[in-house]
Design a protein around this nucleic acid. Structure first.
Lengths: 137, 137
DNA sequence: ACTTGACTTAAAGTTCACTTTAACTTGTAT
DNA sequence: ATACAAGTTAAAGTGAACTTTAAGTCAAGT
């Protein structure tokens, strides 16, 4: 099966302009053309899905392109790609850790506001703030 | 104890320009001034820490300012603030979920490259790709 | 033949979150 | 007294990641 840019845009929840932009930026290697129009195939979805995952973790376009270019250079870049993957894995792990810290802060605030709303005033629960989770550890 | 903008910048790992920018944008309510210079106190660190947490989860400045403004309007905005907190909590939870999906993808890639490097070629492990984690569920 | 809708490119525009610059003031040290 | 380090503002500049615009191509339907 093959897909138009519009179909891919709908499937991947991005605009057609964004897909062209990604292609122009070299994030989508070897997109087929028929009469100048892009034609996407199953193989391209593998890239699109990896791409959306890389975007999810805020990997900059420049770095994604680096990775894509390495894949285009064959087995000689296997080690370099492996190291990029390891590095990104560490980044994800520390992102999750940071998010969990923030989650605790928001959960604390949630409880704080529950009590303040029940009491009708913030003053009434201000002493609770002393037990706030530390943000700097 | 009170702190200069430079000291705060060092403690919070941001530039002094960024702190002034945050202040100008209304993200730091009621910063004291002495001879026109900003003077930070313990109370301000509470805001700075909440702010760095809000930045961590990519909360836009506009939304952070909304929250800060609500806090300045007293108890009548308790419910509104509570709802903002709940909403942000959900955003964090879905971010963690997305990150964990991405982590799986990168862990799969890690194994893939380990095998490819051991085999000396990608071709040798290409069939493994068939068992790649689905990105769209 | 002609309109329509989806595609194309190159280039300019937008938004966000800062960052830098320039001109100026102030407090401390020599 | 003077230099200098650190603060101030307003405004312009930056970089990333798109988005929009303008001008054009192309295949299908009436």
């Amino acid at each position: 099966m093959s897909y138009t840019i519009k179909e891919v845009a709908e499937l991947m929840n991005v605009s057609t302009a964004t897909l062209r932009y990604y292609d122009d930026e070299g994030l989508l290697p070897n997109i087929k053309r028929v009469n100048g129009r892009r034609v996407f195939e199953e193989e391209d979805f593998k890239w699109l899905k990896l791409l959306s995952c890389m975007k999810e973790i805020n990997m900059p376009i420049k770095k994604i392109r680096e990775y894509v270019q390495l894949t285009q250079q064959g087995d000689s870049t296997l080690q370099a790609r492996f190291e990029m993957i390891l590095q990104q894995k560490q980044i994800i792990l520390s992102q999750v850790e940071e998010l969990n810290k923030c989650l605790k802060v928001f959960e604390f605030k949630e409880e704080y506001y529950k009590k303040a709303i029940a009491a009708g005033s913030e003053k009434a629960v201000e002493d609770m703030m002393e037990h706030a989770p530390k943000l700097n550890d």
